[in-house]
């Protein structure tokens, strides 16, 4: 009965969704008016970043990204509050095999370097602070899985996280003081497609990379502490 009602409801929703979206032609030029064309035409001159998605995320919609980072921080804080227990359960898992342990020890620095590369080059190539932070967190996850005694210092993690968030806000306030608005570009743009270009965009993305990496590592460690 319940399933029948659900299927009926889904048929209703699916019919209207499909009949709406089949009217929208796929793959035609739809950026001729509105904000997309403006970003495409003026983005390289105004921000100096070769990757337009980065320049939208960090520069044009930078305030939005600040809110996003705040949501991540609130989620990590809420998880810590929910999963807090007075006596942490001792991890009774076995150590991984020698092959996994040796491989993890060799791979860990390479994964960290890859994550740093991804967020430092966020304004030139695909990638950025969020992707690089996720890659760094997965490197730490490999170490958590391989070594039973491996643990991270939560004090250092929260210091890194809060100072990276402060750097983001301070760069924004400097833009307000010396430029035109919050998060305005106050540094020289440089030539496009070189590492030192695009003004404050690489600085903000490096801060976001550190913040996301520390946050996701703390999140994984909080969840791993609840299992035996």
């Amino acid at each position: 009965m319940r399933k029948a009602i659900a299927v009926l409801f889904l048929g209703f929703i699916g019919y209207y969704l499909l009949s709406t979206f089949l009217l929208v032609p796929f793959g035609v030029v739809r950026v001729l008016e509105g904000v997309g064309l403006k970003y495409l035409q003026d983005g390289l001159q105004q921000t100096g970043a070769a990757n337009l998605v980065t320049s939208i995320v960090v520069n044009y919609r930078g305030f939005d990204t600040l809110g996003e980072v705040t949501v991540l921080f609130l989620a990590a804080t809420g998880m810590g509050a929910l999963l807090y227990s007075k006596r942490p359960t001792e991890r009774a898992r076995q150590n991984a095999s020698v092959i996994v342990k040796t491989g993890a020890r060799i791979l860990f620095p390479l994964i960290i370097i890859l994550g740093a590369y991804v967020f430092i080059h966020g304004h030139l190539t695909p990638g950025g602070g969020f992707q690089g932070g996720a890659i760094i967190a997965s490197g730490f996850l490999l170490m958590f899985m391989s070594y039973r005694t491996y643990h991270v210092n939560h004090v250092i993690l929260s210091r890194v996280e809060s100072s990276a968030g402060s750097v983001f806000v301070i760069i924004g306030l400097l833009g307000l003081a010396y430029g035109s608005s919050f998060l305005a570009n106050i540094l020289p743009l440089g030539t496009a497609n070189t590492l030192f270009s695009a003004g404050v965009i690489p600085l903000i993305y490096v801060a976001v990379g550190f913040k996301v990496g520390a946050e996701l590592t703390a999140l994984l460690d909080t969840m791993l502490q609840t299992v035996k």
Binding site: V53, V118, F130, A134, S138, L141, M223, L224, T226, V227
Partner: peptide
């Protein structure tokens, strides 16, 4: 033609999200 989004989905959707579900199931 969205390499930024593909990289994010590969790192976060495939990696971290699965691990978080696995830890919950283990618990």
């Amino acid at each position: 033609q969205a390499p930024d989004v593909a990289l994010t989905e590969a790192a976060i959707g495939v990696g971290l999200s699965t691990i978080i579900f696995m830890i919950t199931i283990r618990r």
